[in-house]
Amino acid sequence: MFLAWHEIKKNKLRFTLIMGVLILVSYLVFFLSGLATGLANLNRESVDKWNATAIVLTDESDKSLYQSSMSTDDLKEIKAKEAAVIGQLNAIANNGDEKKNISLFGINKNEFLMPNVTEGRAFEKANEVIADDSLKEDGFQLGDELQLSSSDERLTIVGFTKKARFNAAPVLYSNLSTFHHVKFGGAAEENNKSINGIVVRNDSLTNVTTNNKLQVIEIETFIRSLPGYTEQKLTLNFMIYFLFGISAVIVAIFLYVLTVQKISMFGVMKAQGISSNYLSWSVMAQTIILAAIGVAIGLVLTLASGAFLPAAVPVSFDLITLAIYGFVLVVVANAGAVFSVLTIVRIDPLKAIGG
Rank of each mutant, 00 (worst) to 15 (best):
L3H: 01
L3V: 08
A4H: 03
H6V: 08
E7K: 12
E7W: 07
N11V: 09
F15R: 04
T16E: 02
I18R: 00
M19T: 08
L22W: 02
S26N: 13
L28T: 15
V29A: 14
L32I: 10
G34V: 05
G34C: 10
L35M: 06
T37C: 10
L39Q: 11
A40Q: 15
L42M: 15
L42H: 13
R44L: 14
R44T: 15
R44W: 13
S46P: 11
K49M: 14
N51K: 09
N51C: 05
T53I: 02
I55K: 04
V56F: 00
L57N: 06
L57V: 10
S61T: 06
D62A: 15
K63G: 03
K63C: 05
S64M: 01
L65K: 09
Y66M: 11
Q67M: 09
M70I: 05
T72C: 02
D74C: 00
E77Q: 03
G87A: 00
Q88S: 10
L89M: 04
L89Y: 03
A93M: 04
N94F: 08
D97A: 12
D97Y: 11
E98G: 08
K100Y: 14
S103H: 06
S103M: 06
L104P: 00
G106I: 02
I107Y: 00
N108E: 14
K109D: 12
K109E: 14
N110D: 15
T118S: 03
A122C: 10
E128G: 00
V129L: 07
A131E: 06
A131Y: 07
D132G: 12
K136Y: 12
E137F: 14
F140H: 07
L142V: 05
D144R: 03
E145C: 07
L146N: 10
L146Q: 10
Q147E: 12
Q147H: 08
E153S: 08
L155W: 07
V158P: 07
F160M: 06
K163Y: 14
R165G: 13
F166D: 09
N167S: 11
P170A: 12
L172K: 01
Y173H: 05
S174I: 00
L176H: 01
G186E: 12
A188Y: 03
I195R: 02
I198R: 01
R201D: 07
D203K: 03
D203A: 05
D203E: 07
L205Y: 01
T206R: 02
N207I: 01
V208F: 00
T210N: 06
N212R: 12
Q215N: 11
F222Y: 10
I223S: 08
I223H: 08
R224P: 03
S225H: 09
L226C: 04
P227G: 05
Q232G: 12
K233N: 12
I240G: 13
L243A: 11
I250N: 13
Y256V: 08
V257F: 12
V257S: 11
L258P: 00
Q261I: 07
K262C: 01
K262G: 04
M265R: 11
V268W: 08
M269Q: 11
K270W: 01
G273W: 09
S275K: 02
N277Y: 06
Y278G: 07
M284D: 01
M284W: 01
L290Y: 10
L290P: 04
A291Q: 06
G294M: 03
V295T: 15
A296I: 11
L303W: 04
A304I: 08
G306T: 01
F308C: 04
A312F: 15
D318M: 06
L319S: 10
I324V: 15
F327R: 13
V332S: 10
A333S: 15
A335R: 06
I353C: 08
